[in-house]
Simulated assay, not measured.
Amino acid sequence: MIDTIIPTTTEAAEPVTADGTPKMSARDVSVFYGPKQALQSVSVDIHDDKVTAFIGPSGCGKSTFLRCLNRMNDTIPAARVTGDISLDGQDIYASKMDVVQLRARVGMVFQKPNPFPKSIFENVAYGPRIHGLADGKNELEAIVEKSLKRAGLWDEVKDRLQESGTALSGGQQQRLCIARAIAVDPEVILMDEPCSALDPIATAKIEELIHELRGRYAIAIVTHNMQQAARVSQRTAFFHLGEMVEYGRTKDIFTNPREQRTQDYITGRYG
Rank of each mutant, 00 (worst) to 15 (best):
I5S: 03
I6M: 06
I6V: 11
I6W: 01
I6L: 04
T8M: 15
T8K: 15
T9P: 07
A12D: 11
A13M: 09
E14H: 13
V16N: 04
T17K: 06
A18N: 02
D19F: 13
G20P: 00
G20A: 00
K23Q: 07
M24P: 02
S25M: 07
D28E: 12
D28N: 12
V29R: 06
Y33W: 06
Y33R: 07
G34R: 06
S41C: 01
V42F: 09
D45P: 04
D45K: 02
H47T: 02
D48I: 05
D49R: 14
K50V: 05
V51A: 04
T52R: 11
T52P: 08
F54Y: 08
I55W: 14
I55P: 12
S58G: 11
G59I: 14
C60G: 12
G61S: 08
S63G: 01
T64N: 03
T64Y: 04
F65S: 08
F65C: 08
R67G: 01
C68W: 03
N70E: 02
I76P: 00
A78Q: 11
A79S: 12
A79E: 07
R80S: 09
D84T: 14
D84Y: 04
I85K: 05
S86R: 12
D88M: 03
D88P: 02
D91C: 06
D91W: 09
D91E: 12
S95N: 15
D98V: 09
L102W: 07
L102H: 08
R103L: 14
R103A: 12
V106I: 14
